[in-house]
Write a protein that binds this DNA or RNA. Structure first.
Lengths: 234, 234
DNA sequence: TGTACATCAGTGAACGCGCGTTCACTGATGTAC
DNA sequence: TGTACATCAGTGAACGCGCGTTCACTGATGTAC
């Protein structure tokens, strides 16, 4: 049973984070101010410390929330594909678009996760697992595609120095997955976030107006490399 | 002839920017402080205003400098390749590595250009031309590769909605260049900056240790899509 | 069921610090005749 | 070549503002007996 006090506490925590997200949206991570939050919430500034022990502590809570949020939309999008029995390409496209939609709807939170690091802030270990939620979705698709032999493993040779580096990925999935697939997966992963960052961080301003079409085309092109339609190539 | 006063002024301007870059490296763009600069330079805080009319003005100067810096290393790398008569793939690889090297050596400046936008700061039009310096190098390689029929124009169809969007790129080069080539070029461009951002912004921490090998492999893989070795594919 | 005690949310004042920008000023360097 | 005037770098004080964090406190809510 949740006591009255406990419920109120959870509500105030959520309120603090809601206001904090608004601040970051307006003024960036550097503009996150406990005093401004307390003012907006109608409490005295020191009261915030009943909920978060420091500014960095609140920042960590926001980052963890954001990782969960983007992870959740990716999981939902992928699960819907799996339930509908769509192919791996469609799973990739669907997850990519879900990630972009979230990023565009929450640009500041996206920046918190994938933009310039906040100076003086070191992400604590608690953020690692939430961060992997999204990555795991992509990994699942990669493994499925690899199992079906759909990875367009390029003729690029994967240098042996990377063997050891790729162990982490192999350890995260049960089935074996080739170095070629991992490299292609990483490259595509970087391509996806490069595309989202370009749009969210304003690199496409005065360059490309139709962002929807642009992103769709890039994701489609990335899909060629990672989840198939190999035969028609060349 | 450069007068004494003029030379001194240029020197002080350079000194201010040097210190400012150090600040941004340490505390991020939000930590750029005119007062701190004046302290370090040994002047009274208001004296800075003889050189830059506001904090934003200084920020703009830094951004323009940075665009020129990354543009210059790219031009140098590419020019060396052209002089040596290397092929387009090598030009791409060389420019990509030059960009990464600059970014790793100046992470904060890189963040200024390609990271989370500085809240409340709107880049003035003066930054557009310097920003295009780097892009133009890549465009040159793309056009050369396209002319030789080396673009692995994927079977991804370029949606007609993007025709209009791509006009800007066509207007920047004299020769005609296909929609397919532009799409592949943009996608590769995003992949490059995605790869650099992942490394510089810390996304590879606890994931990939050997960044040199990783980047080289990704750039190699990206090269497959954009500058050839098509025949051996599939 | 009622009482005594512990927990905890929120107060209010204070510490010590930082910032951008303006303004009237001094004194040295450059320029025009 | 020398003088009068304009330019301009740098000063020092001030305005008005913001911040994170600590501390001793009050009073209400919950808990154990």
């Amino acid at each position: 049973m949740v006591g009255i006090r406990q419920a109120a506490r959870a509500q105030t925590e959520a309120e603090i984070k809601r206001i904090a997200r608004g601040q970051i949206e307006r003024d960036g991570a550097a503009g996150l101010s406990l005093r401004a939050i307390s003012r907006e919430i109608g409490m005295v500034s020191s009261a915030i410390y009943r909920y978060y022990s420091s500014r960095d502590d609140l920042l960590t809570a926001l980052i963890v929330d954001s990782y969960h949020a983007i992870g959740a939309v990716a999981e939902t999008a992928d699960a819907a594909c799996v339930a509908a029995g769509t192919d791996n390409r469609q799973r990739w496209v669907s997850v990519a678009h879900a990630a972009r939609a979230w990023a565009c709807a929450h640009p500041a939170e996206y920046g918190l996760l994938f933009g310039t690091p906040v100076p003086g802030y070191a992400a604590p270990p608690d953020t690692i697992d939430p961060a992997r939620r999204f990555t795991n979705v992509l990994l699942g698709i990669l493994v499925a595609a690899d199992a079906q032999g759909l990875i367009a493993a390029s003729n690029t040779t994967v240098p042996t120095e990377l063997n050891k580096e790729f162990e982490l990925f192999r350890s995260l999935v049960e089935v074996p997955v080739s170095n070629g697939a991992i490299l292609v997966g990483l490259s595509t992963w970087m391509g996806l976030f490069g595309a989202i960052s370009f749009e969210v961080f304003g690199q496409l301003n005065n360059v490309i107006d139709n962002r929807d079409a642009m992103f769709a085309a890039v994701v489609d092109h990335l899909a060629d490399g990672v989840v198939g339609t190999l035969p028609q190539r060349g």
